[in-house]
């Protein structure tokens, strides 16, 4: 087996199930204005009673698409995006804009189209707007406010090591808190510097 590291070139598409095909098309095509790229219509494959379906794609820029499956005649999941709150927000799509002006344009467009949006939130390295699609899927538009560097990657590796040692591999991981992890991270940093 080769040690060669294969590369990825960003997102081709992500895909989600929908039971609101009309609202989904209207939201992504008309409200957001994302061009329709492709639509596949297929007979079910006969395996596991796989239903007939449509699979359709909207252009999210830079070669990336967001796509949906509409499985004809199936019972909708009650909460396809998951429960509201932090769990439901965890699995989300964040799109990139390049300038403050672009972020402002999106904010103005979403407000004009009646989409409920969050306040802009400045995180560590991005500034973001949040909203939801008609299925409840969380969406985000992000502006990078600082490029990541080697120090970020080094620090992140130490953090992930501390996470695994604290919450998985260490003693009594089920009793551990974020304070324990931060203390272990501090030990790692002290050893490093």
């Amino acid at each position: 087996m080769s040690d060669h590291q294969p590369v990825l070139h960003g997102v081709h598409h992500t895909a989600f199930p929908t039971w609101k095909p009309k609202e989904t098309v209207e939201f992504y095509r008309d409200t957001l204005g994302l061009p329709v790229l492709h639509a596949i219509t297929a007979k079910g494959w006969g395996r596991d009673e796989h239903p007939d379906f449509l699979h359709f794609f909207f252009d999210a820029g830079n070669g990336a698409a967001i796509a949906f499956f509409y499985y004809i005649g199936t019972e909708p999941l009650e909460e396809p995006a998951g429960p509201r709150g932090y769990l439901g927000m965890a699995r989300h799509t964040s799109w990139r804009v390049e300038t403050e002006a672009e972020l402002k344009e999106w904010r103005e467009r979403l407000v004009a189209k009646g989409v409920t949006i969050s306040e802009e939130i400045q995180h560590e390295v991005i500034k973001s707007l949040y909203f939801r699609d008609p299925n409840g899927y969380p969406l985000e538009i992000s502006l990078t406010t600082r490029e990541l560097g080697e120090a970020d990657a080094m620090d992140a590796s130490l953090t992930l090591d501390a996470m695994i040692e604290t919450f998985v591999d260490g003693d009594a991981p089920e009793t551990k808190t974020i304070e324990d992890m931060w203390r272990l991270k501090g030990e790692k940093v002290r050893e490093l510097i």
Binding site: Q122, H123, W182, R183, E187
Partner: peptide, 18 residues
């Protein structure tokens, strides 16, 4: 600092007790 970054400010680790 706004809360979003403030609550992430211990990422570098610490010594002592919070």
């Amino acid at each position: 600092l706004d809360p979003a970054i403030w609550f992430g400010a211990l990422v570098g680790g610490f010594e002592g007790a919070i």
